[in-house]
Design a protein around this nucleic acid. Sequence first.
DNA 1: GTTGAGCGTT
Length: 255
Amino acid sequence: MSHFGRSGPPDITDTYSLLVLNITFRKLLSLLVSRTTADDLFPLFDKYGKVVDIFIPKDRRTGDSRGFAFVRYKYADEAQKAVDRLDGRVVDGREITVQFAKYGPNAERIQKGRIIESFPRSRSRSPRRRHRDDHYKDKDYRRRSRSRSSDRYERDRYRGKDRDSRRRSRSRSASPVHSKGRGRGRYDDDRRSRSRSMSASPARRSPSPQKSPSPRKTSPPRGESPSRRSRDGRSPSPRSVSPQGRPADSRSPSS
DNA sequence: GTTGAGCGTT
């Protein structure tokens, strides 16, 4: 029982597989991974639930572990708990990632780490059951649908939580992505904005901005402002209203 | 120079 991988694949149909990634994306880590064996992982994961099997895929050619392991739990809630508790946790000074397996041994997609028995090597059973397939299909579909319903609810809930937790932990890594998305959006905005301004005033950039705005810039506000204010009568003489401005002026030359 | 997600045996 100690050697999990050696026992081969037990009854994995009713188990929930967790994918454990514990490395820092490095070949050097292979050495470290080497140290981390199924026996080492077992107690760690067994603490959170009943571990049925632990499998560490290794390259048969080199015999080196690929840097991840599969932990099979008997119950989903325990597996979920392990994911929640061990995901992002530092083990042996290394942060490990624990998540539900997405693909089964047959490269089939599995839900919530649960391995769905589609049609493994039992092909000899009855590979061709066309008319009956429909019947089975309906049954399966109904059963799956129901199961999926409840599973989905739980999953959604967990997923949100997990996602949040993961996001917080990985905010750094998500940063670049964020910047990318934002940059794109901004660029788009800029482009749109620019396109408008470009079409509106295409000569705003190339020519000297000092030449044309210069004479007009200082002139218009002055001439227009007074005339208008004067007419309004609201701010009759801004100049005379500032008593302090005059002393300062007179003082300026004085000193 | 770096990152990141990565999915399977007797």
